[in-house]
C-alpha cells in the first residue's frame, strides 16, 4: 500500500525544490476564483432582480 520509498528516482531537499507546478496550478485556481466571483456577483446576483434595498 505505502509508496513511502518505493519507485523513488531521487531525493530532493527543501532548498533544491521549487514548486513551480504548484505555483502554476494555484495561479490558475486564483484566476478561476476571481472570474467566477465577478460572474456570480455582478451577473447572477445583481442581475437577479428583485433586490432588497434600504428604506429610501
Amino acid at each position: 500500500m505505502s509508496s513511502d520509498a518505493d519507485a523513488l528516482e531521487r531525493h530532493i531537499g527543501h532548498d533544491e525544490f521549487d514548486p513551480v507546478g504548484t505555483l502554476a496550478l494555484i495561479g490558475i485556481y486564483f484566476l478561476i476564483l476571481l472570474l467566477m466571483w465577478l460572474f456570480m456577483y455582478f451577473v447572477e446576483f445583481l442581475g437577479n432582480d428583485l433586490t432588497v434595498v434600504g428604506m429610501i
Binding site: W37, V52, V53
Partner: peptide, 14 residues
C-alpha cells in the same frame, strides 16, 4: 465587493 453592494448600491440586510 460586498461593501460596494451595501454602500454603493444600497442593498440592505434584514
Amino acid at each position: 465587493t460586498i461593501t460596494y453592494g451595501s454602500v454603493g448600491l444600497g442593498i440592505a440586510m434584514i
